[in-house]
Simulated assay, not measured.
Amino acid sequence: MTPAQRRRAAEQAARRLARTSLFRRARHLALYLSHGSELDTGPLLRCCHAAGKAVYVPRVLDGQRLRFERLVEDMPMQRNRYGIREPALRGARRGAARMDLVLLPLSAFDTQGHRLGAGGGYYDRAFAARRSGGPRLVGYAYALQQAAALPAEPWDVRLDAVVTEKSLHVFRN
């Protein structure tokens, strides 16, 4: 995709998600700060701030766990060992189970709600004990990242939905 196509896709995906009841009802929202070829979350972050959402971003701890820290505008940022931006200072945090909506990065997704991540298992560990009524897990991706089927392991956490620039896919889990 060209840079212009990528920017347009990010704007379209943000608008599409902002129109959903998942987004409108969410008060505490976690999202990733895009890195590399991931769908840019910048337009979505602007929607969140405009809608008064409390936004949290992941911080990698001890090479195994994620902690979600509150992101405020103009907060100083740094790059972690993977080159991903995260808050430079430790901030207010919220437990993964107490989020309303979580936007997850992915490399691919399928029609059953399986996602292929970067391979670290951070999100799978963070949401392994998720119960009904817990946060809604939504992949945020380009439409071209959809695959017919992906391999899944018993510990893989399935998505509730995926938002792309072209559609909203809702899965029955």
Score class of each variant (00 low, 15 high):
Met1Val: 11
Thr2Ala: 12
Pro3Lys: 12
Pro3Ser: 05
Ala4Leu: 13
Gln5Lys: 11
Gln12Leu: 06
Arg15Gly: 05
Arg15Gln: 10
Arg19Ala: 14
Thr20Ala: 07
Thr20Cys: 06
Ser21Cys: 13
Leu22Trp: 12
Leu22Asn: 08
Phe23Trp: 10
Arg24Ser: 02
Arg25Met: 08
Arg25Ile: 08
Ala26Val: 04
Arg27Pro: 12
Ala30Glu: 07
Tyr32Leu: 05
Tyr32Ala: 03
Leu33Gln: 11
Ser34Leu: 06
Ser34Trp: 05
Leu39Cys: 01
Leu39Glu: 00
Asp40Trp: 02
Gly42Thr: 09
Leu45Arg: 01
Ala50Thr: 08
Ala51Tyr: 02
Gly52Glu: 00
Lys53Trp: 02
Val55Met: 04
Tyr56Cys: 13
Tyr56Phe: 14
Val57Asn: 06
Val57Leu: 11
Val57Ile: 11
Pro58Met: 13
Pro58Lys: 05
Gly63Leu: 12
Leu66Trp: 11
Arg67Gln: 14
Phe68Leu: 09
Phe68Cys: 09
Arg70His: 15
Arg70Leu: 11
Leu71Val: 11
Val72Gly: 14
Pro76Thr: 09
Arg79Ala: 11
Arg85Asn: 15
Glu86Ile: 09
Ala88Lys: 05
Arg90Lys: 13
Arg90Tyr: 12
Ala92Trp: 07
Arg93Ser: 15
Arg93His: 15
Ala96Asn: 12
Ala97Val: 14
Ala97Glu: 15
Asp100Ala: 01
Asp100Leu: 05
Leu103Trp: 00
Leu104Ser: 12
Ala108Pro: 08
Phe109Leu: 03
Phe109Lys: 01
Asp110Tyr: 05
Thr111Ser: 10
Gln112Asn: 12
Gly113Trp: 05
Ala118Ile: 14
Tyr122His: 13
Ala126Leu: 03
Ala126Asn: 02
Phe127Tyr: 04
Phe127Ala: 06
Phe127Pro: 02
Ala129Ile: 04
Arg130Val: 10
Arg130Pro: 03
Arg131His: 13
Arg131Lys: 14
Gly133Lys: 04
Gly133Thr: 03
Leu137Phe: 07
Gly139Gln: 01
Gly139Tyr: 08
Tyr140Trp: 08
Ala141Thr: 10
Tyr142Thr: 09
Ala143Gln: 13
Leu144Glu: 15
Leu144Cys: 15
Gln145Pro: 14
Gln146Gly: 11
Ala147Ser: 10
Ala147Met: 07
Ala148Gln: 15
Ala148Arg: 15
Ala149Val: 13
Leu150Asn: 01
Pro151Thr: 07
Ala152Asp: 07
Pro154Ile: 07
Asp156Lys: 02
Leu159Ser: 04
Ala161Gln: 06
Val162Arg: 09
Glu165Cys: 01
Ser167Leu: 12
Ser167Phe: 10
Leu168Tyr: 09
Leu168Met: 11
Leu168Ser: 10
Phe171Trp: 03
Asn173Met: 01
